[in-house]
Nucleic acid binder design. Structure first.
Lengths: 234, 234
DNA sequence: AAGTGGTCTAGACCACCTC
DNA sequence: AGGTGGTCTAGACCACTTG
């Protein structure tokens, strides 16, 4: 400690309680004292205890219910938080040179017979892109993307040789939420060609749809180079 | 609105500000008014605005600095939150029957010549397990796990035919943080045998080390059945 | 019906950072 | 050096949920 101030910070309270859970003073399923009792015992305001408790609840360590009180969770949820950066930034951060190459660009109109992973409305105009991100001239990510020209009309005139759709969207089209799926797959013939790999390697695939409220903005399927690892630290 | 209460909740304030960011009233890079001005404009306490702002900052939409003020982020971070349940619960939730089979159990002493992904101390006693989780009698997850008997001695006497290490640890050994890696791989001969798959399929692998403060508790490598998808909703 | 957590307010002071 | 966000307090009232 630097200057042990006389007032307790909410982090102090959080650490105190979390410590008692981690060292099994309070075991899974146990009920913790009321906020007010803890406040009185530690000599701080109830609001401060509340702030600490909310943090622990967000973390998934405890569960709180009005009138029911606070319990230590029996099934602490393991939350893994993945931070997904702009691909260019990721590659440059790793010290490699970045390049982006547009492979295909087409505009289609959604219809029942058009097969797309994008949840489009009938007759909606869609921009379909294929592109590859290169790290030190090696294929790094192959992306197959659908974009709604209803939700984001401005993207029709973007020159994707200058900026990737990934980056343009991140910078100009905030979203409210997204769905994601991660899985392992073997490339098909085209994908193997574009990625310059054999057809027998395992690749990590990431599919993501982003939404603005109820309207879909874009669907992305990103195929990563062999050996790619998604990392998470919590 | 149900009963438009006269007081503004912090969620109201959050929605107001978030709305103005999503509809581009405030664009990436823009500076937002001071908390106090917003409070005065909306007729609420500064604390309430602060609560809303902290939420948006946690969400990654804005960035706040003392004296610097509040800015709309230019590179909104995409945070994907994965919730990793106990395997048995996951399988049962999907409506399948769950079974767990212990394949191998050994106790080893760490030494420089012992190759393990676990960050062990020299001479530390380690429990090494291999097990398979079955869903409707089909292999679902193959796990290879190392556990420190220093950090968690009680696990030496657990009967893993009755409860999986996964579940025992979650229920009895809270952790402070964990590292995770996700990647795609092709199974080796043993793995293919235990999983009852060809050696040419792509499998999703998940490696995780959990810690209690500075001390490692366990390292897990989990190999998932073909077609497995990790899902995330934000 | 009553107990517990959730939130709002107003005011004060602190800590950090830019100007 | 001063402005802005961050936090603490005390008190009040609300909302949910359980006994």
């Amino acid at each position: 400690m630097k200057h042990p101030s006389e007032r307790l910070s909410w982090q102090d309270v959080r650490n105190d309680i979390r410590g008692k859970i981690l060292n099994s003073t309070y075991k899974p399923g146990d009920k913790l004292p009321r906020d007010e009792d803890i406040a009185q015992q530690l000599q701080c305001a109830r609001t401060t205890v509340h702030r600490a408790m909310r943090f622990l609840a967000d973390e998934g360590l405890i569960e709180r219910r009005r009138k029911g009180g606070t319990m230590v969770k029996t099934n602490p949820i393991k939350r893994a938080i993945l931070e997904i950066p702009i691909t260019r930034i990721e590659i440059e951060t790793l010290g490699w040179s970045y390049q982006h190459r547009l492979l295909e660009r087409e505009i289609l109109t959604a219809s029942p017979s058009l097969l797309t992973p994008f949840p489009a409305q009938d007759n909606e105009r869609l921009l379909h892109l294929k592109a590859v991100h290169l790290a030190d001239n090696q294929p790094y990510i192959l992306e197959d993307r659908w974009i709604s020209l209803t939700t984001t009309p401005a993207i029709e005139s973007v020159d994707f040789n200058k900026i990737s759709a990934n980056e343009w969207l991140v910078r100009h089209r905030p979203y409210s939420h997204c769905d994601m799926q991660i899985y392992a797959t073997i490339p098909n013939i085209d994908e193997a060609k574009f990625m310059s790999v054999e057809k027998t390697v395992a690749l990590l695939a990431l599919e993501r749809t982003t939404w603005i409220e109820q309207s879909p903005i874009t669907h992305l399927k990103a195929l990563h180079a062999p050996g790619y690892r998604l990392l998470s630290n919590n």
